[in-house]
């Protein structure tokens, strides 16, 4: 049963706890993993900002270039012998705040009408306006503004906004890493996951897979986390088995 058909919003007011209980194990795992990733990213961001790192991310260890994970360097070293783990942590600086900002701006714009998210929401509003329940609300005398704000935007789009926020963060990581990979984003020696993959890739065909694979896996794991979190929350907030 869809929420927008409860004019009183019963389903919307169902307690969060009962929803969590209703969620499947898969959803819980997805959300759990997503929260873990978000937590790790946030903590690492703070660690990087205050400079509390396992090693100096710009210190070169000439004796150990492109080293695999091991003692001393938990995630190995890059082509200049720099600690990969420290650089991964510091690399979060490159997308964290810009990403949040981009998501915030696009969400704000989304309400008033601008690309990506906006077009989805606008499309949805267009579409929903034709629906019988909205017409019913019109007939009942509710002003259009209220209908749009409450019944269309909030009930229908709140989950959408949350999903878009998590996906937006994923996209921000994608954009930042791609730009840095191409050499137009964050420049060496400042670490970014994109320029780390790029620098490591120079040694990929020599059989030194690790220096590029480590940041690639970081990108993969993080984007996956954001996506799974968004998806899980989506299904939690919009349970289909309610009826």
């Amino acid at each position: 049963m869809r929420r927008y058909r409860e004019s009183t919003g019963e389903v919307a007011e169902r307690s969060e706890r009962s929803r969590w209980r209703a969620a499947t194990l898969t959803d819980r795992a997805a959300i759990g993993y997503g929260l873990l990733v978000v937590g790790l990213v946030a903590v690492s961001y703070v660690l990087g900002a205050v400079g509390w790192l396992p090693d100096d991310p710009s210190r070169m260890d000439m004796a150990r270039l492109n080293a695999p994970p091991g003692a001393g360097h938990l995630l190995g070293t890059d082509f200049l012998g720099r600690d990969i783990l420290s650089r991964l942590i510091v690399g979060i600086q490159a997308y964290f705040l810009p990403g949040l900002l981009a998501v915030a701006i696009s969400l704000a714009l989304g309400i008033t009408g601008a690309p990506a998210i906006a077009s989805i929401i606008a499309g949805k509003i267009q579409f929903l306006r034709q629906k019988s329940f909205i017409e019913a609300a019109h007939v009942l005398g509710l002003p259009t503004r209220v209908i749009v704000a409450k019944h269309i935007l909030w009930y229908n789009c709140a989950p959408l906004l949350i999903i878009q926020a998590t996906l937006g963060m994923g996209e921000a990581i994608l954009v930042e890493t791609s730009l840095s990979y191409l050499g137009f984003g964050v420049q060496e020696p400042t670490a970014s996951w994109g320029n780390m993959v790029q620098a490591g890739a120079n040694y990929f065909f020599h059989g030194k897979f690790w220096p590029s694979t480590a940041p690639a896996l970081a990108i993969l794991g993080t984007i996956l986390g954001f996506h799974l979190l968004g998806d899980g929350l989506n299904r939690l907030l919009e349970p289909k088995s309610a009826s």
Binding site: G170, L174, F204, F205, T213, L224, D231
Partner: peptide
Amino acid sequence: AGALARGLRLAVYLVSAVPVFWLGYVVIY
């Protein structure tokens, strides 16, 4: 609710999180 559907979805999520610049190298290698 099927297990296969869940597995497929996870697989799809996994591949679309792979950075394309890295995948290109892996495939060529």
